[in-house]
């Protein structure tokens, strides 16, 4: 792929033409926040926190999906973008019941990290307090819908990497829930191979290893990175 040049936040960058803005930014140590994106699985552009401004267009572009182009000028952290990101994170906190202090992922949660990055100090929106269940019927793992942000990383990793397609999303809009098989207890979902990739892919504490401590949750995430690098780049670096 021929290389092209663009600027991101004023920095002149050259990148392979098939890269996304997000990939090009990351390689050049420019941090763009993401939630639904996960290297190694398809991008869906759902969380909208990676939106950037591209000059010449009045539409914001999801950097996880938008390819770089010659002469492109990208802004990743204008005041407007920062405010939007903060609002989106607050909307997520208000949508389910996120109580970080009692969460297994506390300190190791991408949502929490993002809340800190965007400087969220309180939530301006009314809490929705949906009634959400916790399912611990699986012998190793559990799902706590109170903490799910519907990023569908579990769905994609299970379908695209493991090939089991145990997960999917049911309902729509605010009624959406991730489900296993026919919306049955995870422990009874016969398609599940108990590989644990979904747990590793989950950005929050929604999917967890039972009885795991915070430190173990972190290790899990690294395991997935290893797997993805191996698949994508054929490099086995642990």
């Amino acid at each position: 792929m021929n290389s092209i040049t663009l600027t991101i936040d004023g920095k002149l960058i050259s990148a392979p033409g098939d890269q996304t803005i997000l990939e090009a930014a990351r390689e050049n140590d420019i941090h763009i926040p993401t939630l639904c994106n996960l290297e190694g699985i398809s991008a869906v552009g759902a969380c909208r926190v990676c939106l950037v401004e591209v000059s010449g267009s009045n539409r914001l572009a999801p950097s996880c999906l938008t390819k770089v182009a010659e002469g492109m000028q990208v802004q990743t952290a204008t005041d407007r973008l920062r405010e939007y990101r903060k609002m989106i994170v607050e909307l997520l906190f208000a949508e389910r019941n996120h109580i970080c202090s009692v969460c297994v992922a506390n300190g190791n949660c991408e949502l929490q990290d993002l809340a800190v990055t965007v400087g969220m100090d309180h939530v301006r929106y009314e809490y929705q307090y949906p009634s959400c269940s916790v399912d611990v019927t699986h012998k190793e793992f559990g799902v706590d819908h109170n903490r799910c942000i519907l990023c569908t990383r579990c769905v994609r990793v299970c379908d695209e990497v493991e090939g089991a397609h145990t997960w999917d999303v049911s309902g729509r809009g605010m009624q959406s829930r991730v489900i296993t098989d026919l919306n049955q207890p995870w422990g009874t979902a016969t398609s599940c191979t108990s590989c644990g990739k979904c747990v590793q892919a989950c950005p929050t504490g929604a999917l967890f290893r039972q009885g795991s401590t915070v430190a173990e949750m972190k290790k899990d995430r690294e395991l997935l990175d290893f797997l993805m690098t191996a698949r994508e780049k054929k490099q086995w670096i642990g």
């Binding site: 379908d159 145990t166 729509r172």
Partner: peptide, 12 residues
């Protein structure tokens, strides 16, 4: 088809 896909589509 995976059961979860059928359930997901039907409830949408």
């Amino acid at each position: 088809l995976p059961p979860s896909r059928v359930y997901g589509v039907a409830t949408f």
